[in-house]
């Protein structure tokens, strides 16, 4: 697959502190790429390097196969986590100014703004000052400003913070549509449910090091433990539990059901669950059988823990 952005062996130091230690990441074209990591891991530094706000000490960044240069900022749209706009400036004027800084013409910016203002039905905000808008409204303007110049690489740092669920959905749909129209999205967040929902690729940074990178499905396969969640209807739950416990590694499971069946997570040694099903069939009535697939949250916690 073609990579839009290639980060090669990037090192960044602040004095004695190493913020990024030899990090290499490939962001495939037209993907939604989750950049994950605990607080202070180095995500923001990496994002700032992509935005040319800071320069790496070592390593290189390639956009579309060519080393990143100053003019490339017009191809990148960035929405930082800590964000804001000029409070005393009018919405329309401010959006045009920021779009022109990205290299758009005044008329081009106006046309695009009109499109987005119509789409979000916020035409009446044009002449309002930023300080008259609510936080959620300001975030909407911020989103529009980020995507206005039709960048091929979009970088969102905690995009959903500050949005109510309804607006978060609108923004999520817009992001998906932008991806469908050809944009590549880098998504930095702590909210694992949105990673699960949106990202096809992820990279996990912890303590300045890249500890995980790749297709989300591949990673899930890599992290799965061949554990199956089962529900078994039997006369004596305790007796059956003890019996299975002798043969397999088990632990109690939790899921909603109508009966008071025995709920277990059973770990086996191979991917093949045929033997397990055959065995369980002889012991009880199976009314629930599902493979436990690690979610992004589990992977995150497990990877970070093992890195420590």
């Amino acid at each position: 697959m073609d990579n839009l952005l290639i980060i090669k062996n990037v090192v960044k130091k602040f004095g004695d502190f190493i913020a990024l230690n030899n990090v290499s990441i490939n962001v495939p074209k037209n993907s939604i790429f989750g950049l994950l990591g605990p607080n202070g891991a180095g995500k923001t530094t990496l994002i700032r390097i992509i935005n040319q706000i800071t320069l790496p000490d070592k390593g290189s960044v390639l956009l579309d196969g060519k080393p990143l240069k100053q003019e490339d900022i017009q191809y990148i749209g960035y929405m930082p986590e800590e964000r804001g706009l000029y409070k005393n400036m009018k919405v329309g004027e401010q959006a045009i100014y920021l779009a022109m800084l990205k290299g758009m013409t005044k008329n081009g910016a106006k046309t695009q703004l009109k499109y987005w203002f119509d789409k979000f039905e916020i035409g009446s905000w044009w002449n309002k000052k930023m300080q008259e808008l609510s936080k959620g409204q300001a975030q909407k303007i911020q989103f529009i400003i980020t995507v206005l110049h039709k960048p091929k690489l979009l970088i969102f740092d905690e995009v959903f913070s500050g949005f109510d669920p309804i607006n978060a959905n609108i923004i999520r749909d817009e992001i998906l549509q932008l991806r469908n129209e050809g944009a590549t999205v880098i998504f930095s967040t702590h909210r694992m449910e949105s990673v699960e929902e949106l990202c096809d690729h992820i990279a996990l940074i912890d303590k300045s090091n890249l500890i995980l990178e790749g297709n989300l499905i591949d990673i899930k396969k890599q992290f799965k433990t061949n554990t199956f969640q089962v529900g078994l209807v039997t006369a004596d739950n305790e007796k059956l539990k003890a019996e299975i416990g002798e043969k397999f590694t088990i632990e109690d499971a939790n899921f909603k059901s109508l009966n008071k069946e025995l709920k277990l997570n059973i770990k086996i040694n191979s991917e093949n669950s045929t033997e397990l099903i055959k065995y369980l069939n002889t012991k009880a009535l199976i009314n629930h059988f599902v493979e436990v697939i690690p979610n992004a949250n589990d992977i995150f916690i497990q990877a970070v823990k093992s890195n420590n």
């Binding site: 960035y78 964000r83 804001g84 920021l98």
Partner: peptide, 9 residues
């Protein structure tokens, strides 16, 4: 106002 990061990008 935290606009600075947007401008210097």
């Amino acid at each position: 106002s935290r606009i600075v990061e947007i401008i210097i990008s």
